[in-house]
Design a protein around this nucleic acid. Structure first.
Lengths: 189, 189
DNA sequence: GTTATTTCTTAAGGTATCTTAATTTTTAAG
DNA sequence: CTTAAAAATTAAGATACCTTAAGAAATAAC
């Protein structure tokens, strides 16, 4: 677990053993079982989660009472609700485990403290946030694509292995179409 | 101009006069006249731009040849194509001035260098990137809203002054509806 | 292994939004 | 001031996607 995080950070910055040790003290390992919530709507998101294993989704419930999946998270992704985390506003979204999931959790105050103790961490999270930004922009690009059929095909092509870990109706929600219509699309292929 | 950037950074970090001076040496002021391009599709985006005054749009051209506006940028916003800038890939988008626009520009190598010389800058850009992330997520939320009518009303409500600086058909593009249909929506109100 | 729960499919009818194309209005140019 | 170019509107017909509702298939629970 420690090794996994270390490997992850190595992509972006080189921490000393010492620095890693300090950082690790701020982290808590947590396990969520399938369907359990990491964050509820209305709560203030006080943590960032690094997914060690498992699968989560970030979703909201719209005015009509339908679930709308905003994104998925898998191993080696940081997940949070940035808006709530940074601005300390009540979250409009839920974060939920879709499989039994293990995360490393750091809360806001500890992260702020860690930034001071380990300046290099600023760099790491600057880069991580940039990558998150790119990921979200790429999703939006998909989104702008004509026709939900194309959108679905792209999704499966790019996230093949992963598309088998989540039910179709969640993919539909993520792609912003109804499960019924997604079923139609799949048939017509 | 210098003062403007200083005021902007003050929101997030406190730079010394000295640090500001150094950072300023890396920046170039540039002026683009209306319709001029800051970045073309296919080019690698090698800079980040801080908008001093004016108005820009980031857009792409889809398979059908239609413009699709991804976002607008105004005074005191950083603009770049993150995907191209970070990953050094050819840009899929255009960045264009919609009014005569003045920017402060920093290129990638200089920014990397500046991070080394002024560590606090890492912190500043970590925070800036977080804010950009939040902005993009908020847009997506809009997006998830039922009905384009609601979407349009929200847009006007939130960006009132600004919505008068851009033509309707660009707002339509931003909201992902046709100008004809937007016209319909406006009438029915 | 039988029952319950969750997920996926099918089909009919409805609606939001698009397409095309022509017309008007507004803004820019000479 | 006049003409050209850009932007906004209108309207009719087309279609992508939704809604509802019911039944089939798959997965989980007992």
């Amino acid at each position: 677990m420690r090794q996994q995080l270390l490997d992850y950070f190595k992509r972006y910055v080189s921490f000393s053993e010492e620095e890693l040790n300090i950082f690790f003290k701020y982290l808590t390992a947590e396990t969520y079982s399938k369907k359990e919530f990491l964050l509820n709507e209305g709560a203030i998101c006080n943590s960032q989660f690094f997914i060690i294993s498992g699968l989560i989704r970030v979703f909201k419930i719209d005015e009509k009472g339908n679930e709308k999946i905003i994104h998925f998270g898998i191993e080696n992704w940081w997940v949070t609700n940035m808006e709530s985390f940074i601005l300390k506003e009540p979250s409009k979204v839920y974060i939920q485990a879709l499989e039994d999931t293990t995360v490393l959790k750091i809360n806001k105050e500890d992260l702020e403290q860690a930034y001071k103790t380990i300046p290099k961490l600023e760099r790491a999270f600057r880069i991580i946030t940039e990558r998150m930004f790119i990921a979200i922009e790429r999703k939006n690009e998909h989104y702008a694509k004509m026709g939900s059929k194309e959108r679905y095909e792209d999704f499966v092509a790019q996230l093949q292995s992963f598309s088998q870990r989540v039910p179709q109706y969640m993919i539909a929600s993520y792609l912003d179409i109804t499960p019924e219509y997604l079923s139609e699309l799949r048939k017509s292929k």
